[in-house]
Design a binder for these strands. Structure first.
Ligand SMILES: Cc1cn([C@H]2C[C@H](O)[C@@H](COP(=O)(O)OP(=O)(O)OP(=O)(O)O)O2)c(=O)[nH]c1=O
Ligand SMILES: [Mg+2]
Length: 993
DNA sequence: GGGTGTGACACCG
DNA sequence: TTCCACGGTGTCACACCC
């Protein structure tokens, strides 16, 4: 098959959180500052970054502590009150549940990477990512096996996966593909709602009605197979695989081949399961929702050569979660019944829910909420701990209610440009940056034909501290001069504020908000002109026109309708007071997933201020600015225009393989907004290709999905079990240069990597496999690695530690699954996709096998210091500090001691080599190992670590932590008319527990 | 007490 | 050699004004 050769691993996504490094290295009880030897600017940055992360972490911890402090103050009766209110809300939500719609969420697989792989097929069989050395936008599924993922710095990704090829992003290409995809989706729902370049919601209810009348022909699509999809292994064992046995979640799933179709369509090689001859794949789809969505995905694949995944559910909230369930190239359905929804939602980790991110998860976990059922069980408490918006959302989530209104009412709220660069501090340089950004913003505004009133300057200090400063203008502006003037004035203030110290920046951004379209503004000008004439008054010109304009704005710019949109997209705020009134169920029911929060009680943000609401001092500043020249600061003339702000070693080889090893921000392509591109790119490219080895060893895994080099295996340099022969690919695939360049590299890797197919072909059915097809042939196993597998996936052998807690996964029967070793419970498990494996890890973690505290403790442990020092080997030792340790920690500690000095009798399979410091680590405790690697990655260049107590409190308590909930006025919730449904909910959850 | 502007945060892709 | 992006959205607290 063409696209989905990437396997179904969901990845180690959970294991790598953007912030994991920090998280694992920060103690909740008072982090330590890690000082480091500074041997270069990059290390300096690493340290600054880290320190900033520590700060942020401390702040979150404080928030949590504050939250926890509230709990003892709540009496049983108080909590019970919360329960009563929650129950009323739930009852109302339940009574208004709409199961009549069929909502689909479509999400392209590894989108940017997939586009790049399509453009350059050589990238298909190697781990690759899109982005730069500083940051990756995404990675292909092959790279994800190594832990490489979106929002990971490229240089760290390279540590995890030295063969990683990084391709610079080309947004125009992605936008073009996105357009093609949308064209197809529109045929299923003309009101389809794109959420980003690679995502969209559809309501296919109407389509399904029409579809019932479709002729077969209207449901039949043809796709020409590519050469890659045709068997080349030359085996004689040609077998005809009945459609009924085909992989259910590949794009061929449930395909009912046209009886008229040529036989070649179904003749497949029994070894590689690819089609034997070139030809068309002709497929007639059914009339069900699932069939319609398969058709959709089939057509997307046909048109773009890129696969998509989909979720089908009665509402957007659920559809979104579903689309991730069977990624890549799969789909998942939640039938439109309450029962099915409850079953789905019951054990759903809250983190999977849109809008619940890392911080929210942590805060909720602190009060014992990790699953949606927990949300229900703790509803009385949550009512008191969280804001109305958050609480309402939690209640909706826990019974699986989301918006059913898919509509396109997108209205842009802001346009901005920001750039990261190597540190600058000279005012001249700062102003120049500001000028360039203003210029770019002006261009973007012009493209969008918009004006704005509020200019926000965003600054990231060289210590990674973020600052935003904004000012609302008297009038709408869009011209370069006005924008630059505004931005310049703010910048000047910041420079002056920092003085006499220099303002050292690593990022600057300029954003315009309070937008209005050109059309609107002319309309308003006309009307205001009219008013001006009528009300010739005492005010100045500027002033007297404003109130009128503003009032009109609030009507014209659609704020009221916007307000009436509720939101499904939600970001849990950990703020606690219910300042808002309890929303009636009706209004809080329908939520717009494009917005992060539910906004039930918020009034439209009228821009109608007579006087701009800036602080007097700023106004003063601006007064002077307005009269100044709009030109560049003189210093620009100096030269320096081409100052290279970041080293760039971006390369492209002749054959098109590209690797971007750095960035020159003058060449950086700016990104698109969700719905369009605003800027431009150029990237210097040279050549570099480190991919040969991966062609060798990954091809098989892609095809068969059984070579499963786990992140830790990779680190360790040992792929469990796979024989070398299995991974061989044609030498023809490699160019001589490639071979030369990587001879040593591949040789050394090959030496340490033993790759084996771990396949258990026991024919017994997996226990409790709800999704697994019973009649999967052996050959299919090879190709259906991304297939859906039940949570009750199987676990074999090695029952170490934590076995009990993982009971649900245990099974001795394994069929067509991949073997994974859980880094938490250390068991070998078989899953049909990485997603399920990841879920397992989540579960293990949720069982508190590893808590952040553990990690923090571990971090502070003497042994950990040793590990952290291991960037230069095991012989270095950090300073040691006594810790009080939990029992668990003590145990880990003990194990870790062994890690540092593995006994000679240790089986080589039990040794992991840290990919960063090369130090051997015991595999038995993957948690520690992961922590070790995290630490190493974060400080790979650290020569020495000095541990010292962190000064507390420093400016962190300033204002914006969780505020003590002021008196909440939650109005009495609309009386429930449906106690019965609530009883059912109660019964459901109670029955479960 | 409501509206507005502002800054910090959280979150998503 | 390279060294943590950038495009967005929404919420909340607070100060200030009327
Ligand atoms: C998550 C993320 C995505 N992106 C871009 C690159 C992605 O290809 C694109 C879509 O994001 P995603 O859909 O989150 O990721 P993906 O499509 O690459 O992979 P998959 O859906 O199979 O898990 O958005 C970023 O630029 N930065 C980010 O932090
Ligand atoms: Mg995607």
């Amino acid at each position: 098959m063409d696209s989905p050769e990437e396997d179904s691993d969901q990845d180690w996504s959970q294991a790598w959180d953007k912030d994991l490094l920090t998280e694992s290295e920060v103690s909740r009880n008072g982090p330590t500052v890690v000082d480091q030897h500074i041997s270069g600017p990059s290390q300096q940055n690493g340290s600054r970054y880290f320190e900033n992360e520590v700060k942020k972490e401390e702040q979150v911890n404080r928030k949590i502590e504050e939250q926890m402090r509230k709990i003892p103050k709540l009496t049983e009766a108080t909590i019970q009150q919360g329960v009563v209110i929650a129950d009323k809300l739930l009852a109302d939500l339940e009574s208004s549940r709409d199961l009549s719609r069929t909502i689909v969420h479509i999400d392209m697989d590894a989108f940017f990477a997939a586009v790049e792989m399509r453009e350059n097929p050589k990238l298909k069989n190697i781990p690759m990512a899109v982005g730069g050395n500083d940051m990756l936008s995404t990675s292909n599924y092959l790279a994800r096996r190594f832990g490489v993922r979106a929002a990971m710095p490229g240089f760290i990704a390279k540590k995890l996966c030295p063969g990683l090829v990084i391709v610079p992003a080309s947004y125009d290409k992605y936008q073009a593909v996105s357009k093609d995809v949308r064209a197809i989706l529109s045929q299923y729902d003309p009101n389809m709602c794109p959420m980003s370049l690679d995502e969209a919601y559809l309501d296919i209810t109407e389509h399904l009605e029409k579809r019932k009348q479709f002729t077969e022909e209207q449901r039949t699509y043809r796709r020409t197979l590519t050469e890659e999809e045709v068997c080349t292994c030359g085996a004689d064992d040609v077998g005809k695989i009945p459609a009924s046995q085909m992989d259910e979640t590949t794009e061929c799933e449930n395909i009912s081949f046209d009886s008229e179709d040529r036989e070649i369509v179904t003749i497949r090689c029994a070894t590689c399961s690819k089609q034997k001859c070139l030809g068309d794949e002709v497929t007639t789809f059914g009339i069900s929702a699932e069939e319609a969505v398969r058709e959709m995905r089939f057509r997307i694949h046909t048109a773009t050569m890129i696969t998509a995944s989909a979720g089908i559910a009665p509402n957007m909230l659920l559809a979104k979660v579903c689309s991730d369930k069977n990624k890549p190239n799969g789909q998942f359905v939640i039938p439109s019944t309450r029962q099915a929804i409850f079953e789905f939602v019951r054990d759903l980790p809250i983190r999977k829910v849109f809008g619940i991110g890392k911080v929210s998860e942590k805060m909720l976990t602190a009060v014992g909420v990790t699953t949606c059922t927990d949300l229900y069980n703790k509803r009385g408490l949550l009512y008191h701990l969280y804001s109305t918006i958050s609480f309402n959302y939690f209640m909706r989530v826990c019974i699986g209610i989301g918006s059913t209104r898919v509509e396109r009412d997108y209205e842009r709220k802001s346009i901005g440009v920001e750039r990261t660069f190597s540190e600058i501090s000279k005012p001249a340089e700062l102003y120049k940056k500001c000028y360039e950004l203003s210029e770019a913003l002006t261009e973007d505004l012009s493209k969008e034909q918009m004006l704005g009133k509020t200019v926000t300057l965003k600054l990231k200090l060289s210590n990674f501290e973020m600052r935003t400063r904004s000012h609302t203008q008297i009038q709408y502006i869009s011209d370069m001069e006005s924008i630059y003037d505004a931005a310049k004035a703010i910048l000047r203030q910041e420079i002056q504020g920092a003085s006499p110290a220099p303002l050292k920046l690593r990022l600057m951004g300029v954003r315009m908000t309070n937008l209005i379209s050109e059309g609107e503004v002319t309309k308003q000008k006309t009307i205001s002109g009219l008013f001006k004439k009528i009300t010739t008054k005492t005010q100045s010109d500027v002033d007297h026109s404003l109130p009128v304009i503003s009032q009109l704005e609030s009507v014209n710019s659609g704020h009221i309708p916007e307000q009436s949109n509720d939101n499904e997209r939600f970001s849990v705020t950990i703020d606690n007071c219910h300042r808002d009134q309890f929303k009636t169920v009706e209004s809080s029911m329908d939520i717009d997933p494009r917005k992060n929060f539910c906004t039930p009680a918020r009034e439209p943000n009228n821009e109608g201020n007579v006087i701009p609401g800036s602080s007097p001092k700023i106004v003063e500043q601006f007064d002077t600015v307005y009269s100044t020249d709009n030109s560049l600061p003189e210093c620009f003339g100096e030269k320096n225009g081409q100052q290279l702000e970041c080293r760039s070693v971006s390369m492209a080889s002749d054959d098109g393989l590209e690797a971007n090893l750095g960035r020159d921000d003058t060449n950086k392509e700016s990104r698109s907004s969700l719905f369009g591109y605003v800027s431009h790119v150029k990237t210097d490219q040279d050549q570099l290709n480190k991919s040969v080895f991966w062609k060798d060893c990954m091809t098989d895994s892609q095809l068969g999905g059984h070579c499963v080099p786990k992140l830790n295996d990779v680190m360790e340099g040992v792929f469990c079990g796979k024989e070398r022969g299995d991974t061989e690919c044609s030498e023809n695939d490699k160019s001589d240069t490639e071979l030369d360049e990587h001879q040593d590299y591949t040789a050394s890797v090959e030496k340490s990597f033993q790759i084996t197919k771990e396949r258990n072909v026991n024919n017994s059915s997996p226990i409790g496999s709800r999704f697994l097809k019973p009649d999967v042939t052996k050959s299919e196993q090879v190709s259906q690695s991304r297939d859906l597998c039940d949570m009750d996936s199987m676990c074999v052998d090695k029952v170490k530690g934590l076995a009990e807690s993982c009971e649900t996964y245990c099974c001795t029967q394994v069929e067509d699954c991949q073997k994974y070793e859980c880094p938490v419970c250390c068991k070998n498990l078989y899953f049909r996709n990485l997603n399920l494996f990841t879920e397992h890890i989540d579960e293990c973690l949720a069982r508190k096998c590893v808590t952040d505290e553990d990690r923090a403790l571990k971090l502070e442990s003497p042994n950990n210091q040793k590990i952290l020092n291991s960037g230069s080997g095991l012989d270095k030792h950090g300073s040691v500090r006594a810790n009080d340790v939990s029992e668990k920690y003590a145990q880990q500690h003990a194990e870790e001691s062994e890690l540092s000095a593995p006994s000679t009798s240790t089986n080589s399979q039990d040794i992991l080599i840290c990919p960063v410091c090369n130090a051997p680590q015991r595999k038995s405790n993957m948690v520690l190992f992961n922590q070790h690697v995290d630490a190493c990655l974060n400080r790979q260049t650290i020569k020495e670590i000095v541990q010292e107590d962190r000064p507390t409190g420093k400016r962190l308590s300033s204002g914006h932590g969780i505020q003590t909930p002021s008196k909440k006025q939650k109005t009495v919730h609309k009386a429930s008319s449906n106690t019965l449904s609530n009883m059912t909910i109660l019964g459901f959850f109670k029955g479960k527990n």
